[in-house]
Design a protein around this nucleic acid. Structure first.
Lengths: 267, 267
DNA sequence: ACCTGAACACCGTTCAAGT
DNA sequence: ACCTGAACACCGTTCAAGT
């Protein structure tokens, strides 16, 4: 039972699917995956469960809508997330990019740059919303015809096309990139989870340290490689690492498109 | 309430953590993610919930153990899964490989081959156990110091080392491969889900067809690329596609290791 | 040490009833 | 058309009690 700091009634604007999804994202961000319940939702929205069920079919659909909303915001360039803010988005200026590059209407830079930007967008979204990673996996494996997969696929695929990849390889190249991004982002989501399972005050660096320490304590006979690499794991930078992987795949794509295919040719 | 086809008591051998985990995997395979409940578990094991809680801390730990058991069986070469079988594994011969290659004590073939084999092992495990994909994501993002990540990491990493990659790139190259495998396997898990959300009788091919049809019906203005690629998506082979992605990354790794790094150099 | 099973708090969902 | 809120079936987990 949380303290009654929140005013129990805010009947200002009417209930809407959008407002419900918005509140769901808030709840997920604040209280984690287990924090999204219909009771918490009804309390925040000052209604009964029936009202929510009029706008939303069930909890699964609500989770899907929340996932889609966050992904859409992350993948659409120049749009910041309106999730946490209660007021509708006006003409908000895009936040300053950490890379220093301006965000224009048509994204600037080489196709490689734009792929990196899309990938980092998703990466950061998962870091900001740790519940997104397993949700994304569940979403994708259940309904790939939903709106989440095409959204990501489209953003990446356009740049693959711009890269000059022959049409016959579009699907393969785009799939490889998307799968990598989802896998890597999912794995790295933990770094933003505020030490849920670790106790408070254990931040990102301490967490990495704990992980690589755990790896160093593995059985030398069973895990020689993982132990040897534990040191590298300790002081790696997530985003750099993530981008290095993107570059590895981009290299593979461009080299393969040029007709070399050394991975198979070597054998 | 299922019909009483199962004998309600099978008090043959004593309860054990292993037997509980085994039954959990059975339940997950049979009834899906929602099928694993403590009631179903107690019914199958003919005990009370307290007995289970004596061997297992909570449901999360049980899910983790089930995930680890399946991953271990998939990643360890020459070991088939003992999950569905009730009798303890004796000296079972490895099942015939679909690729026709014999399974020796030390896995044969080039490092590339062995990487493909490990990757396919996980791929097939996720296909056989559709609940594994989101579970893996949840597992990895919560406790990367657990046993699942090192297991996968070690199997892939040894082959990366054998590939002749310089030590400074071990972590990056292995991470890229592991992330891709997890992302791709998760996404493809759906193809083995027996049309849970689609109704019975809708098999793999029909499912792919439905997906690409959905993609073809997307808005032409918003999704030109995805629409253009829908046909390729329709008749692609999952495993081929998956391996093509692996090869793309292997190409990137070997080319980058040779000092070219064309992805960044090109700009 | 290992197991039993009633009991508890909580959850998603439904639905007759209101406006 | 949109919302209310009591009620239902079910869930994970606990714990005093047994052997």
């Amino acid at each position: 039972m949380p303290p009654r700091t929140r005013r129990p009634q805010r009947r200002t604007d009417a209930l809407s699917r959008e407002r419900i999804v918005e509140t769901a994202v808030e709840l997920l961000d604040t209280a984690g995956e287990t924090g999204l319940t219909f009771r918490a939702l009804t309390e925040r929205l000052a209604t009964g469960p029936g009202a929510i069920y009029w706008h939303v079919a069930n909890k699964g659909e609500l989770l899907g809508a929340a996932t889609d909303a966050v992904v859409a915001a992350a993948v659409t360039p120049g749009r910041s997330e309106p999730t946490a803010a209660a007021e509708p988005t006006g003409s908000a200026e895009p936040a300053a990019d950490t890379a220093g590059s301006p965000t224009a209407q048509t994204a600037p830079g080489s196709p490689q740059d734009r792929i990196r930007r899309v990938a980092l967008g998703l990466f950061d979204a998962i870091e900001a919303h740790p519940w997104l990673a397993p949700q994304l996996a569940a979403q994708l494996s259940r309904t790939p015809w939903g709106s989440v997969t095409p959204r990501i696929f489209e953003s990446v695929g356009r740049q693959v096309r711009a890269l000059g990849v022959p049409e016959g390889s579009w699907f393969t190249a785009t799939s490889a990139l998307v799968h990598y991004v989802l896998g890597a982002a999912g794995q790295n989501a933990v770094n933003a989870a505020h030490g849920r399972a670790l106790g408070p005050g254990l931040d990102r660096a301490a967490f990495l340290d704990a992980t690589s320490t755990a790896w160093e304590e593995l059985d030398p006979d069973d895990y020689p490689f993982t132990r040897a690499v534990a040191a590298q794991a300790r002081d790696h930078d997530d985003r750099e690492q993530f981008l290095a992987g993107i570059d590895l795949i981009l290299t593979g794509i461009t080299v393969t498109a040029a007709g070399h295919t050394p991975a198979r040719a070597e054998e």
